[in-house]
Design a protein around this nucleic acid. Structure first.
Lengths: 341, 341
DNA sequence: CTGAAAGCGCTTACAG
DNA sequence: CTGAAAGCGCTTACAG
């Protein structure tokens, strides 16, 4: 209806048909409901709105952007959307973007600095009004350059430097995991710590390690191994831990998928997860509760992180001051630590 | 380097500094390497390119789009990016898009028709040059409307009607699963069939069921249950199957995540997966091989589907004729069907 | 209350 | 080989 293949309907189309000027039509269609009073006479407003509806008028965003120098576009950079954590965060971003009349370009950077740079340039070339980074390196070197260009941005999932961010309180999450294992009597534990450049892994590990230290059970360096954030990475890291003279009685993996890999490795070693060895993950992805041995994990508010991240970016783009946020995690206790009986 | 906060550099900036006209600068910068000869004299070309580089000139895409009526933008609609299958397909789309100088808007429709409609309108409002649907309903009603508007589009993952699509040969995939289970001696099997509106589940189920029929082992209707495409859906469906008087000796789930849910349910029933009951998934997502009991599954070329889908869309946008493609799947045999010994 | 005019940054015949 | 001009569709002072 109205959206035929023929020549698209523009302000000019409407103006000509109504015998009005483009200015008037623009003013009316552009005005918020309450402002329209000042845009034109009541009758005119009605006529314009009616015809615009009938003809299915849709403003051309390129013309608007060219004129106003605002694109209502936001660039979103993530390590990989095939990581459900980032995909869920993006769902939150998208929801908030839609509510704010913004559209997003999302792109995978695979945590590779050259790709981060190239994709950021690409997105900036598209004249986005702001950026969201889900792939920040803790050293924040790259971000300093972006900040210098004056483009508003916010970080989600991972914090870096003093840049505005919305993250899970990962340190607290690590602490919750430690307190849980401590309460179960585990003194000899290990950590699958994630990538060394991501604040998520760093903070979760720190919260965990410090809590054990406070409990008088220092975790030796050999019990803390870096890993990729996927199942294969978790398996490799767990193999390494289980090959040690005396295996730990519990493992904290800073990511559910790494935890799943660790479960596989434990099983290969003839260990019954939940009985012979306790395993804790992080994020509470939907799979965690459905696993053959349901996974004890720290739930992080992924969707909310994205939603609030975009909301914060909107504030920033309006020139407001913003503060970083750390959203609280929750411990989800399941069979992987309490046993399968 | 050139990308300061100050006034952006435009063709006008370059033209003024060089004492040339905007036309000439545009012609030179716009020309492909070999065409530049006809755009201006060698010396001029050099001067223009050099200054553009120094000043970091980036054409304003809104101006270009407004003028040329091409946006180099593509809309991508998927049920949910938090489904790794779609996320991986999107990675393929993004890769091909980057190679073709296109940018993408991706959006989640959750398989809800009203959302599909609304998001399609939104993306069309952004003046995309083409669309990719990863959320097609088999009945293709909605798509008929889009086709009538004359916007080029291609389907990925799910086929529908005669619209151009790039899919896995799902029927063949179902057949491979059946032949594998048949070769293992399973005669009494069941199917977790997915959503009834998605060609993926429909075709995989049909290939499986028909192969069993040909082998003289008709699968009764009670052994075929619909399901959501996630772990929780798979678990529910499996519960339903395992509650039947005599449980099947093997289950084919049309999706790895549903298979994982089924494994959990089987385990709850005291069955040892791979020994007491065989389970086959679909897609070979990265997790499949890393599960505690590695999952036998049908690998589908997800990344390639996306890549070829976008490539096909480019052809379509050029006005070329295109044919649908079905990419071949591969059987991956693992412990979930062959036992854990 | 309404309109004429300028201009956002680009491309593309058309002239010379 | 190079430039002047028109125009893509919109917004926004400015006048009246």
């Amino acid at each position: 209806m109205g959206t035929q293949n023929s020549s698209p309907v523009t302000l000019r189309t409407l103006a000509d048909r109504l015998g009005l000027s483009v200015s008037t039509v623009s003013r009316v269609l552009h005005a918020k409901p309450d402002e329209s009073v000042r845009a034109a006479s009541g009758a005119t407003v009605e006529r314009i709105r009616k015809l615009a509806d009938e003809l299915g008028y849709r403003p051309n965003p390129h013309a608007t952007s060219l004129r106003t120098r605002r694109s209502n576009l936001v660039g979103v950079l993530v390590p990989r959307l095939s990581d459900i954590v980032l995909a869920t965060i993006y769902e939150g971003i998208e929801e908030a973007a839609a509510e704010n009349g913004l559209s997003t370009f999302v792109t995978n950077t695979r945590d590779v600095p050259d790709v981060q740079r190239a994709r950021t340039d690409m997105v900036l070339g598209r004249r986005v009004d702001g950026l969201i980074f889900g792939d920040a390196y803790i050293d924040a070197k790259f971000l300093a350059g972006i900040a210098a260009r004056g483009v508003p941005f916010v970080l989600v999932s991972r914090r870096a430097g003093e840049h505005p961010s919305v993250t899970c309180d990962d340190y607290l999450g690590g602490r919750l995991a430690a307190e849980h294992l401590l309460s179960l009597g585990h003194r000899d534990v290990a950590v699958i710590a994630g990538e060394p450049y991501a604040s998520t892994g760093i903070d979760r590990t720190a919260g965990f390690v410090n809590t054990y230290r406070e409990a008088g059970a220092e975790i030796p360096a050999t019990r803390i191994v870096e890993s990729r954030f996927d199942a294969a990475g978790g398996r490799t890291a767990a193999e390494c831990l289980l090959a040690q003279g005396k295996a730990p009685s519990a493992i904290f993996a800073v990511n559910d998928f790494a935890a799943i890999g660790a479960i596989g490795a434990a099983r290969d070693h003839g260990l019954i997860v939940g009985d012979d060895i306790a395993i804790v993950g992080f994020n509470d992805t939907p799979l965690a509760a459905e696993l053959p041995v349901p996974l004890t994990t720290i739930r992080s508010p992924m969707h909310e992180m994205g939603y609030r991240g975009l909301t914060k970016l909107v504030a920033l783009m309006r020139g407001e001051q913003v503060e970083s946020e750390r959203l609280p995690p929750t411990l989800m206790v399941r069979a992987s630590t309490t046993g399968q009986a």
